[in-house]
Design a protein around this nucleic acid. Structure first.
Lengths: 220, 220
DNA sequence: GTCTCCGGCGTTGTGTGCAACGTAGGGTGC
DNA sequence: GCACCCTACGTTGCACACAACGCCGGAGAC
């Protein structure tokens, strides 16, 4: 059990998978939208077969839902779903963050810190603010952190349920205080990791997720 | 995001999926065994198409691994993998167990207790001992408990990574003391739930998993 | 004797055609 | 006017055929 690499070679099915995934994650395919096989196949210049395979895999990831003879629909996340997802994140990500303390090299930490600082710049109020650019950087930050935990099973469990870009599709929902807190958390996590203190890093991650949950889901 | 039911109607692909899954979980397909598409299709009297779909989904679940142009192999779990899986279980199952306290009805608890008692009977040393029968009952117990948590995202995260029957394919690895402890834990969990004490129930589950980890993985 | 190259074989990857299922619309009966 | 049925359409589900790729074995050269 190494990676869920899956049918990596299939160029066509891989293309269909990547295309559909980004389309969903970027919001080009709205939640609840119908994803037809022929329609998608024609758009990509492929046959239905690789598209079918891509849809099957996306369904396994939870990004689309398949109804027999009725096709695929982009998954719609309810408030309760979001809340449940934060439960899982809170159970797993702080643990992963804590573990990262034992494995992160100085180079890893430098890269993480660069990301965290860049996010603070882009998130700072003013003419240079670019909330949209934060999404991708945020995804990268959390992905790197997860990778540093060296816990593939944990990463798999998180990955299946938490589609960060779907959950955190935008930072526009954040009020200025919450946003500042969130971006400061990233920096603090790096500091905790530099100190080799996994407990501290995990605690910051718990704060980070609590803050995000309040913004995305609302009061508990 | 309700359930990962997926292409529920497809009778053929559903059959292929069920067949392969049970074959793997029951050990008929050994870890590392090659699963050919044509071979499987002929065995089930189907074409390769539904078999392919089943394999794709099993790969997403982590039960098989797909290598491009080289087919599917039954996933082989290393000691480190097992350990990682227990990490995830320890992070999620106690939480789910605690949540079950809020939702379980007396009828649910009676059913759980019946399972726990029956397992104690079957596990007791003597002529009536049937360690093989425990596997299925154990799966049932944990599944019901997880269901009572009313936390679909949590269940999904667990389900993707933890294939209980693969992990706990046999109770023969348990020494008498560990086995007795494990079966007593089930009963204690029910008692804690009856008391409405989620913290207690979660703590027992942590014990239960710690005990299992020691048996399956060995000393930490 | 060993290493390398090449060809055959078996596998998976993809495209296409047909059948089955679900749905929506119009028509008919009450 | 309303409810029900029936038909036609569009979709997905499955099977089959062909192409592409990887692997293994044999022959040749060094």
């Amino acid at each position: 059990m190494t990676s869920t690499t899956a049918r990596a070679a299939g160029r066509a099915s891989e293309r269909a998978l990547a295309d559909l995934r980004t389309a969903i994650l970027d919001g080009d395919l709205a939640a609840g939208a119908h994803v037809g096989e022929v329609e998608t196949a024609e758009r990509l210049g492929l046959s239905r077969t690789p598209v079918r395979e891509a849809l099957t895999r996306l369904a396994a990831e939870g990004l689309v839902e398949l109804e027999a003879h009725r096709g695929a629909r982009v998954t719609r996340f309810s408030r309760a779903d979001l809340d449940g997802i934060f439960d899982v994140r809170l159970a797993l990500e702080p643990r992963a963050t804590a573990r990262a303390a034992a494995h992160a090299t100085p180079a890893d930490l430098d890269a993480l810190e660069a990301l965290a600082r860049r996010m603070q710049e882009l998130g700072a109020p003013g003419p240079g603010q670019d909330l949209d650019a934060l999404v991708e950087l945020n995804r990268d930050f959390h992905a790197r952190l997860l990778d540093l935990a060296h816990a593939p099973a944990l990463a798999a469990a998180l990955g299946t349920v938490v589609h960060t870009p779907v959950v955190t599709r935008t930072f526009r929902a954040y009020d200025p205080d919450s946003l500042a807190r969130s971006l400061a958390h990233h920096v603090e996590i790096v500091a905790a990791l530099r100190a080799g203190d996994g407990d501290w890093a995990g605690a910051v991650m718990r704060c980070h997720l609590g803050n995000a949950r309040a913004v995305m889901v609302g009061a508990r």
